[in-house]
Structure formats: C-alpha cells, structure tokens
Simulated assay, not measured.
Amino acid sequence: MPTVVNEYPFSQVDVFAPGPKAGNPVAVVHDADGLTTEQMQSFANWTNLSETTFLQKPTHPEADYRLRIFTPASELPFAGHPTLGSAHAWLDKGGQPRRDGELVQECEAGLVKIRRADTDLAFAAPPLVRSGGVEPAVLGQAIASLGIEAAEILGSNWVDNGPGWIGIRLESARKVLELQPDFALMGQLCVGVIGSYAPDGPADFGVRAFVPGFSVPEDPVTGSLNAGLAQWLLGEGVVDGDYTVQQGTVLGRGGLLTITVEDENIWVGGTSRTVVSGRVSL
C-alpha cells in the first residue's frame, strides 16, 4: 500500500529576532489535529531545529489553540520561543483571539497567556515546577561540564518550568561567552548560565543555554530558561524590575529578550518574524 501523504500549512518563524536571522527559528505546522505523536516527533527530528510545533484545536474552553512542542528527540510540556513563534504564526494565518490584545495557549504545562504589544509578543512566565537549591552532586556535574571552578559561581538554583533547567550565575557576560562546555560530561542536564554586561553593553545580561540531552547542544535563544531565570533573580533581589537579555552571540546570532514585571506577572517578550511560509507534506 502506498504511504498516504497530506499537506499542511507551514511557517518558519525567527523568534527574539531584532533583525533578520538574528534569533531562534521554530518550525510551525498548522491544522495538525490529524497527525499522530509519532508523525510529529519524526518531523521534528527531520527539521533538526531546537523545536518544531504543531497547532491544534483547543480542548480547554479558555484557550485559543492547543500547541504541542517537540525537540528532535522528545516532546516538551512548555518552551518559550516556540510559544511566541507559534502565536505569531497563528495570528499571521488569520487566527482570531477570544480577547483583545491577548492570546491563551493550551499546552501540556497548562494555559499560558500571551500578550500583543505592537509587533512584539510576550508570554507570562509559567509557575516553576522545581525551584530551590541544586543538589551538590548535580551541581558538581554541571560545574565540571562547564569547565569552571565552583568559586566562580555567584549563585545556582533550579529554575525548571518544564524542560528541567538549572540556573547558574557568573559575575560577567564575558565569562559566560568564554565557556567551552563538555557536552558528554553534561549528559542529560539542562544548564542555563547568566552574567551581567557592563552599563554600555548590548543588554543588561548575557545568557547561554545548553541542552545536549535534547539533541540541541546549545540553544540560540531560549524563552523558557529566561522565564525561569527571571523568577529566580527577582525572587532573590538580584534584579528589582525590568531588564534585557542578549543570547546567541557565540552562535552568530543576536537574540534580544525583554523581561517586564507587570500585573503580577513576569513577561518574556521579543520580536518574531515569519521567514518561510508555505505547505509541508507529511
């Protein structure tokens, strides 16, 4: 029997991109209700992007759409840049939100609010599923895999909102950019590292995200990590309000994220740009 192939609307969106090709791309398949989990995972493996998403009809009465999110290796309950890129693609294809200026995404992690501000979108940081101090053995593995000494760390914490993030803070963005991780030693850990720029720098902080267990050694620009880091830094008083983050520099990108504290929410935002629009055969 010949394999049945169906076509689906398709978008590829650059997220947290202040200019062309500066951010993190996400592949978005629209009207994907008829696809199986196996088909979704297979396509995500084929695109080989950090995430590929599939827009479906919502099952929750308050949601505008349902989103499933896949890395090349596995499905995620939540991820930040796929959330904003998929919201952008949904709007770009004519999606009509139930509320003015706000979208509600349904995903495995629950409902996520997304707000519109001019050409930018921002999501409300979801609750952490794990926070607090990192166990010594786990932290030791993370430190060793980063090739640094424990004395160089200003702080560490679980900042997990789904993928499993560990947050580590260094004294400067320069030290963050100089890291040369050992991904084999890092194993299945998801490690995010943050350090501050000087006042005349390109942003307030520089961030790098390492996720070798998801077949993505370094993620170019990462919304979920920055959402978790913001909750940690604000909770500990390291920052006391809005700030900006640059990520992806080592990979030749220049992703820019804004962290805004408003309405009892932490909003993670940036500019999304549709780069490819068409149809895909699956």
Rank of each mutant, 00 (worst) to 15 (best):
202 P>L: 07
154 L>Y: 08
123 F>E: 07
242 D>A: 15
20 P>R: 14
214 F>H: 00
180 Q>S: 14
80 G>P: 03
259 I>K: 02
162 G>T: 08
249 T>K: 13
64 D>A: 09
189 L>S: 05
94 G>M: 04
203 A>I: 09
25 P>T: 10
110 G>Y: 01
146 L>H: 09
149 E>H: 13
162 G>R: 06
218 E>L: 06
51 E>P: 03
231 Q>E: 12
6 N>Q: 14
165 W>G: 04
250 V>D: 15
119 T>E: 15
197 Y>P: 05
155 G>E: 12
208 R>H: 02
165 W>F: 13
279 R>G: 02
178 E>Q: 14
74 S>V: 06
72 P>S: 02
232 W>P: 10
109 A>N: 07
70 F>A: 00
51 E>I: 01
108 E>D: 13
36 T>A: 04
124 A>T: 03
255 G>I: 11
235 G>I: 08
281 S>N: 05
184 A>Y: 03
26 V>H: 09
24 N>K: 05
18 P>W: 08
191 V>H: 02
42 S>M: 05
244 T>G: 09
1 M>R: 08
76 L>Q: 03
240 D>M: 06
225 L>V: 04
56 Q>K: 11
150 A>L: 13
255 G>F: 03
111 L>F: 08
88 H>T: 12
11 S>R: 15
151 A>V: 11
188 Q>L: 07
100 D>K: 14
207 V>C: 14
35 L>E: 14
104 V>Y: 01
101 G>S: 12
170 L>D: 07
263 D>Q: 14
42 S>Q: 12
